[in-house]
Amino acid sequence: MNENAQAVFNRPQLFGEAVTHYCPGCAHGIIHRMVAEVLEELGIEGRTVGIAPVGCAVLIYNYIQTDFIEALHGRAPAFATGLKRVSPDLIVFTYQGDGDLASIGTNEIIHAANRGEKFTTIFVNNAIYGMTGGQMAPTTMPGQITATSPHGRNVKECGYPIRIAELLSSLRTPAYIERVAVYNPQNIVRAKRAIRKAFQYQIEGRCFSLVEVLSTCPTNWGMTPQESLKWQETTMLPYYPLGCFKTPEGEVKE
């Protein structure tokens, strides 16, 4: 590279220097980078406090260089509620997986959203429990084989996967709720746009904001990283439609 080479894409500074512990091809890395980019671009990293989940992403605080608090499993929205209520000038976000938010933590996320707590949630849905070794999650797809659904998720026994974005957008309290994906560059661009929008609503003190990001788990899905993105597109996408489900501007239908 000669001297007038000029970088048009850099690893964001806020992403830190550590090599992540995530498996090769795990989309957590992409989502972490986007959150770091958005915080930097909005210039709010100095007053942001992240709430880490229990799950693969618990170690997010080794990567994103803001203040962090480690929440108990599923309780990040309660941590965020307490923090944001007493220190409203902080930008507070929770970063949670589907085991954390859609299983043990549904009560916390539903009530935080319903109270209209002014923090942002990045909800990473990869249809499985990653850290504990690939067990079935509430978001696991029908027929999907996991460590605890060896013959494929049987909807007659375990019911259907929970659609968090739709569930939360049925609440009457104004909020910003969007579902995005990362299975190709085009969707990554859209995902980052949604994440930025969520943090902007928080900066304005406007409403609760949640972005559900369809993600992957190559290791526990038993696929290569590339196949995982394909599976996300072909299997998860039809069941988890992308799009904006709710914005505070949208009039709230009775």
Binding site: I51, L72, F79, G82, N107
Partner: peptide, 17 residues
């Protein structure tokens, strides 16, 4: 809060600042 479980965790968030 929605439960005492949530209370215990809200307290930690509040005190953390």
């Amino acid at each position: 809060a929605e439960s005492e479980v949530a209370v215990g965790n809200m307290l930690m968030g509040a005190v953390a600042s």
